[in-house]
Write a protein that binds this DNA or RNA. Sequence first.
DNA 1: AGAGCGTGGTTGAGAGTTCAAGTGACGCAC
DNA 2: GTGCGTCACTTGAACTCTCAACCACGCTCT
Lengths: 163, 163
Amino acid sequence: MTEPRWLNADERRAWLALLSINTLLPAALDNQLHTAGKVSLFDYNVMAMLSEAEGRFLPMSQLAARTSSSLSRLSHVVAKLEKRGWLERRPHPRDARVTTAHLSDVGMTTLEALAPGHVETVRTKFLDALTERDIHDLARIGEKIVAGLDDDHWILRDTESRP
Amino acid sequence: MTEPRWLNADERRAWLALLSINTLLPAALDNQLHTAGKVSLFDYNVMAMLSEAEGRFLPMSQLAARTSSSLSRLSHVVAKLEKRGWLERRPHPRDARVTTAHLSDVGMTTLEALAPGHVETVRTKFLDALTERDIHDLARIGEKIVAGLDDDHWILRDTESRP
DNA sequence: AGAGCGTGGTTGAGAGTTCAAGTGACGCAC
DNA sequence: GTGCGTCACTTGAACTCTCAACCACGCTCT
């Protein structure tokens, strides 16, 4: 049992900054989305991921992967969004175990109405503080961290060059 | 009402990576802390911030600032930690409005027992994926983002050079 | 065909978080 | 020294998330 390696100055700065960003940024975005349309950042992302999928639907487990969430969390949220008429759940025709979540037309319209305000907030609260180079570096570093946490995370697919 | 500026490739990569990190990293750390000692990452941070303060106590509002949390959230959590005997609340002697949270000896011991496993997890889940240079860049970029979200955030004090 | 195992998803209970409202105390204006 | 606005919290209710248990289906092996 040896003495643990404590964080040095840069490691500590990086860690504390990430920790703060982690609570402040989602709070700011949640806030904007909630006043704009009683939607959380997570709700928004669920719908956004569906809107980008072929046919605007995905199996629950793939949607969970794309939102980095547990199936349980997703299930509760999809139930809520379904009650609002923005999503619809259907059984998969070939595999009766899987449920697919479909973005409804009303959901799509809602999402489109929310999108401009949301990206604008992403800019003002996040991207505007950075230079083009910062953003490029952050994308690279961020993807490294994601890879360390989940080595076949969906955002790492098709964007990486192959050998 | 002009067309919003959507995200370009790098902006999107940076944003999606941050979003994923944001859910995966705290989950991993919460997990470790919870199995090690039924403590959340936020609980841990509250105690860690107190442990680093002069005299191991801070007014609630300063503690809230240091944990980037709302006073309400903090109040609930401090109540919980107080019930476990790790913290103690005392009225401020000069200003009866303020409550100070003190880390107890038991709390300090608990924190010290948890710390090695926690830093180790911070390393394996986060820092190990990065080079020294990445960490330095991330610290710089991260602090820029924090500054954009809260221009007098505590982590920006004393670490920045002054004019 | 059926036993056993893994997969995909749901559910309910308990823990945690947020939001709005409330309680005192300070401090300044007159 | 009496209002009156602000500050520093606290509280309770509503909502969200997590965790463990559960169900149903598909796959493989015999």
